[in-house]
Computed example of a mutant assay.
Amino acid sequence: MSASHDLHCHSTASDGHLTPAAVVHRAADQGVTTLALTDHDTVAGLGDAQAAASTAGIRLIAGLELSVLWQGRTFHVVGLGVDPGEPGLQDGLARMQRARQERGEAIGERLERAGLSGAREGALEAAGTAEITRAHYARWLVESGNVRGYEEAFKRYLRRGRVGYVHGDWVAMEEGIEWIRRAGGIAVLAHPLGYDLTGAWIRRTLDAFTAAGGEAMEVACGTSPEPRQVQQLGGWCRRYALLASSGSDFHGPGHPSREIGGAPALPGDLPSVLEALPERGG
């Protein structure tokens, strides 16, 4: 059974497979009543999503997923309940889109030099009006028959250390969290087990995240669906007195992500980030 809320999903405004309106309607079909659209480094899809949510009877929370850097590593921070028109956020996201454009072009050049002719054109077609991401290159690699699936695309070509990997010129964690907070939002550390960190590194990351103003973390997330993983993340959430968030990280049919609304349930003793969102305009 799907959860009644999903606070992490993507549309064609970034690297999802469905338009913002189609994401909202799919969420409604899955029984989701509260949805946050959290596209990568953009709020471009929120207008269409809100129009669809109004007709579907869904509460839409304005969100995004920022790529940030800390200690030379890339992390993702979801912003929930943001004002999409806040000038500082708009300026910051314009900067991020330029960084994404440069990275997308560099990935294409690397793959072309590796003998994968047509990579950039294929990724451009997959991206549509969005900036190219690694996920768009992965989609092209699958559809062109160069790999058998998304996991193989990243493992062979797009992961750190592979021929198509390009380090993103992202915003520093502290500055990105400030963008979210200045826009009235809550900063949420996304999929904490998705960075291949040791326990010591998780502690250091959460120390830095909370010191910068981060207030929540994903505990029940589509990328960490096992009960033991939810319990592990719940323990970190309690230790740092953070609000708990849940989301599928849905990207669309055919993508190896959870179905929208498909994240596990939060442990009952954890304070949900939803409880704080009405105060923030979410």
Rank of each mutant, 00 (worst) to 15 (best):
R113H: 15
R258I: 03
R238P: 00
R120E: 08
A200V: 10
Y195T: 00
G72I: 10
A62Q: 04
R238T: 00
G88H: 11
A49H: 02
T55H: 13
R139N: 00
Q231L: 15
T33V: 12
V147I: 11
P278Y: 13
A244C: 08
G247M: 06
S144N: 14
V188S: 01
P271W: 13
Q229A: 14
G81C: 01
A172G: 12
E102G: 10
A187H: 00
G281K: 12
E218F: 00
A21Y: 00
I180R: 01
P192S: 08
E215A: 09
A28N: 11
P87V: 03
H10F: 13
A53T: 06
A99M: 09
E105K: 07
A13E: 12
D269Y: 07
A119G: 05
Y157L: 10
G214V: 03
E109S: 05
S144W: 12
L69D: 09
V77M: 07
A265C: 09
A187R: 02
E218G: 04
R120T: 13
L158S: 02
A49R: 02
V163G: 10
G247L: 06
A241N: 15
T129G: 04
A244M: 07
A200T: 14
V24L: 12
W201E: 14
E151V: 04
S67N: 08
I180W: 01
G254C: 11
Q30A: 15
Q71I: 02
A44M: 09
E105G: 00
T12E: 11
S4I: 14
A190Y: 05
S144T: 13
A263Q: 15
A3N: 13
S67T: 09
A44N: 12
H17L: 05
